[in-house]
């Protein structure tokens, strides 16, 4: 069963990897060590859950994936190594969606927010508009184009938040707690959306039912390390292991 020293090699490294992380180390200025050597790989169209207790380092890891935080180690997006010099390119390849949609949606209108990414990639106006329409279409929110962000429900905000990164046509989506704070119906809509989106994604969540339903592969983090990386069904059945890492069987 999953042990930190020998993660189950379900999906071995290959050249077709869309995201590859090797030996990532990071400590905060106050001395707190957040990541103690994290390694994993995602292939194209992989949808992977990232679970673990609060403080395990999930959010810190996510902030590394498009260079907002920069620790020691190697991160490659579709074979391109993340460095200080190629941040703009990397950021358009990695769509990072934050937990609180009120932080993600910082523009007054939906249109401006979804257009923010493409505009800051330097795309021409016609292309920006086309991408906004396509991204809103992808999350079934086309009718909301001209709405004011503060008029949206939490579920609507979450979907628009995903559209704000889809408009950048990323290689991979990184989502932080997408189902938090949603009522059952909004949660169901979101799960369907995540299932249907044809894109690789790494989803950090405490929603174990969501993990079980949506993801065949799960990465478990605790105390800055990956303690398991394998088939969701197996991990979910090991109640003792889940309990050790502050998790619960769904």
């Amino acid at each position: 069963m999953p042990i930190s020293s020998s993660p189950i090699p379900v999906l071995p490294d290959s050249n077709g990897s869309v995201l590859s992380v090797k030996d990532l180390l990071f400590d905060y200025p106050d001395g707190h060590v957040a990541l103690r050597g994290v390694s994993f790989t995602l292939k194209a169209n992989d949808k992977v859950a990232l679970v673990g207790p609060n403080g395990a380092g999930k959010s810190t890891l996510m902030l590394h994936l498009n260079g907002i935080l920069q620790g020691k180690g190697l991160i490659e997006i579709s074979g391109v190594r993340l460095t200080r010099n190629n941040l703009p390119a990397i950021r358009s390849m990695v769509g990072l969606v934050f937990q609180n949609p009120d932080d993600q949606l910082f523009s007054p209108t939906v249109f401006e927010d979804v257009a923010f990414g493409p505009l800051h990639m330097g795309l021409p106006e016609a292309e920006v508009r086309a991408r906004v329409d396509a991204a809103l279409e992808a999350v079934n929110m086309s009718a909301y184009r001209e709405r004011l962000s503060h008029h949206l429900s939490v579920g609507e905000k979450k979907r628009i938040a995903i559209a704000t990164v889809l408009s950048m046509k990323p290689q991979i989506l990184i989502l932080d707690e997408p189902s938090a704070g949603l009522d059952p119906r909004a949660r169901r809509l979101l799960i369907n959306l995540l299932r249907d989106l044809p894109i690789s994604m790494l989803v950090s969540t405490h929603d174990m039912a969501l993990v079980k339903e949506l993801f065949t592969r799960t990465i478990v983090m605790d105390d800055g390390k990956i303690v398991a990386d394998g088939i969701t069904a197996k991990i979910m059945n090991d109640e003792k292991f889940l309990h050790e890492h502050g998790l619960e069987k769904p």
Partner: peptide
């Protein structure tokens, strides 16, 4: 957090 979200989108 907003600043991070802005950075993440270029």
């Amino acid at each position: 957090r907003i600043y991070n979200a802005m950075l993440a989108r270029g």
